[in-house]
Amino acid sequence: MPRFAATERLDTSVAPEDLLLTQELANSQGPPTYGIDLFDTPEPAQAWLDGLLEEYPGAPVIRLGPGEIERLRAIRASLHRLLARGDETLHSGAEPPLDAPVNLRAGPNGVEGSPVGTGVDWLASAVTLELFRAQEHDLLRRLKLCHNPGCTVIFYDRSKNNSRTWHDVATCGNRANVRAYRARRKASSS
């Protein structure tokens, strides 16, 4: 079964492989205008999860049980809160928006981490580990929530100066620019 890539379907900047699981989970619900939420019912949620984990090295097979779709939604909401505020949230001392254990081992090759748990808890652990590694390599600040208030898309900012604010300038950026232009025009005509 081919991987369901919500991020690619939404035409966003795709994160590097080390952050792809996190971005795909965050984008499992499209903007409200798309009317897409892969966690509405168990069937699309399981298909999304199967396709995604098929490409994740060392991932276990996860069968969604009762209540686990709610847990997936909660993890996704935590990611959106984290990314809406940027990576400074991780340094603020505030309660972490996503709390999952990871396994760390020190060895001859340095410190290595791996996700722990079963089911959706394993997924939360894998996402937490990706966020930690991204922060360590200064990549987390590039994973952003689109600044359009009605948009929920998470994109990876590949611009040289990390200055992108919209997942797609042609849609979200254009609307914001038109609103600003009309407001300036109205203010100058008054």
Rank of each mutant, 00 (worst) to 15 (best):
T7D: 04
T7S: 11
T7G: 14
E8M: 12
E8P: 02
R9K: 13
R9H: 15
R9A: 13
L10P: 01
L10N: 00
L10H: 03
L10M: 12
D11P: 01
D11N: 15
T12I: 14
S13D: 13
S13G: 12
S13Q: 12
S13I: 06
V14E: 14
P16H: 07
D18F: 05
L19M: 15
L19D: 03
L19I: 05
L20E: 07
L20D: 11
L21P: 02
L21V: 08
L21W: 05
L21H: 04
L21Y: 01
L21Q: 06
L21K: 06
Q23H: 07
E24A: 13
L25P: 00
A26F: 02
A26G: 01
A26Q: 01
A26V: 04
N27A: 12
N27L: 14
N27F: 12
S28F: 00
Q29D: 12
Q29F: 07
Q29Y: 10
G30T: 00
P31G: 10
P32N: 07
P32W: 04
P32Y: 03
T33G: 07
Y34M: 07
Y34A: 12
Y34I: 11
G35Q: 09
G35L: 10
I36L: 11
I36Y: 04
D37M: 04
D37F: 03
L38H: 01
L38T: 02
F39S: 00
F39P: 02
F39D: 03
F39E: 00
F39C: 09
D40F: 03
T41Q: 13
T41F: 07
T41P: 04
T41C: 03
P42V: 10
E43L: 15
A45D: 09
A45R: 00
Q46F: 10
Q46N: 12
Q46L: 08
Q46G: 07
A47K: 12
A47C: 04
W48S: 06
W48Q: 02
L49K: 01
L49F: 09
D50W: 06
D50Q: 05
G51F: 02
L52G: 02
L52S: 03
E54P: 07
E55A: 09
E55Q: 11
Y56K: 10
Y56P: 00
P57H: 15
G58P: 00
A59H: 09
A59C: 06
A59Y: 05
P60S: 12
P60L: 12
V61F: 08
V61D: 14
V61W: 11
